[in-house]
Amino acid sequence: MDIELKHDFAAPADRLWTLLLDPHAMANCVPGMQSVEVVSDTEYVARMKVKIAFISASFTIRTVITEQTSPDYLRCESTGEDSAVGSSVKSINEMFLIPDANGGTSLRVKSKATVFGRLGTLGLNPMRTKADRLWVEFCAAVEKALEDAGSGQETQRQSIA
């Protein structure tokens, strides 16, 4: 299933980039993420819970960053296994950070995800829409994180002054 998502952030690309590459910050932004383990600079293992109606899946997702050009392009591959619903997910994701005219950044994500097992055979319509909804939640959380960090910096700067 091909997923394309886009969101415009007020923050400049380098700030967004820093946040997106901070696994612990991401753990707070990604809906349903329970924990994250940093294996190396380019490899993480995260535990995620995704719930659609009364069905919930718990995925252990291993993500490897295969290519990055700071602060505008990142490519990563993820594989996830779930035992509760007997399914697994593989995805190849690309992230583009494109500065806009107002000093903000447009974040574009292109993802090719394949769902194996029972989730995959049950029709992916709900999952597609769920992905869209999770994206909305994620972007809201990232915006908030950027704001918090931003106001923190402000305060810091003031106190220095």
């Binding site: 109606a53 009364f54 069905i55 509760a84 619903v85 007997g86 029972r118 989730l119 049950l122």
Partner: peptide, 8 residues
Amino acid sequence: AMRQRMLA
């Protein structure tokens, strides 16, 4: 959902 073992 139960019959498809999506939910147990």
